[in-house]
Design a binder for these strands. Structure first.
Lengths: 115, 115
DNA sequence: ATATTATATATCGATTATCTATATATGTCA
DNA sequence: TGACATATATAGATAATCGATATATAATAT
């Protein structure tokens, strides 16, 4: 089975779904959490984040609701759906397959099958 | 330091350079070797491979030469340069940084620094 | 002999992911 | 009042990859 082509540039969706699998979050909060948890490796820009969240919502992987906060403007929270949980599991499996494949090539190891 | 943006979709160049760091190869051979070594995870298409090789050559990371073979058409071999070796080392470091960051997020671990 | 398959390189156009830049609005602090 | 962090959003540009197509040669099957 071939790897999903969008995986290589597409790990961001998986990371967002992972965060939402732990708790509901609003967009800005996801950016900050991702930056912290990745030791500043993932510095997601607003121009990447929001279109991606809208796309996930269109696909039915997340749903959103607005909630007022004290001393802050209204925030748009996202909640992961059953489909989203399933998608997260799939993406994590593909991620493992992908990294193992890359590492196998980088280690210069033997081939899985001869030519 | 932010991660190279091209890394996520850009691990292919690293893998090709890795193969060439072991021995000179021609394009088709790289596709086959990559497929075998990755357990059929990386099934690189010609439309991806050749433009990428031309790009690496333009960047001075590889050089090419044609060589005739018995019972086969002329093949175009690629050889990695000093700059290519350096680029490979850099890309491998970024790869490690990237995977560690993703795995840290996926493990739901603690943050590197508090908000 | 002829058709098919594998080898081998190449280009074009489409798709997709991400970024930069820009826009808007609110709350805090100096 | 002005600067800055928070918060969401869209438009346009760039880059990586793929699908489709094209060409040519060698080996194999019918």
């Amino acid at each position: 089975m071939p790897l999903d082509k969008s995986l290589q540039s597409g790990s961001t969706a998986m990371l967002l779904l992972k965060l939402l699998s732990e708790q509901d979050m609003y967009g800005y909060q996801m950016t900050e959490t991702l930056a912290r948890r990745s030791d500043r490796t993932f510095l997601l820009k607003a121009g990447t984040l929001y279109p991606l969240l809208h796309q996930l919502e269109t696909q039915g992987l997340v749903v959103s609701y607005e909630q007022a906060a004290e001393g802050a403007r209204v925030r748009k929270y996202y909640h992961i759906t059953k489909d989203g949980q399933r998608a997260l599991t799939d993406k994590q499996q593909e991620w493992n397959r992908f990294t193992h494949a890359v590492n196998h090539v980088l280690e210069g190891g033997e081939c899985y099958a001869k030519a």
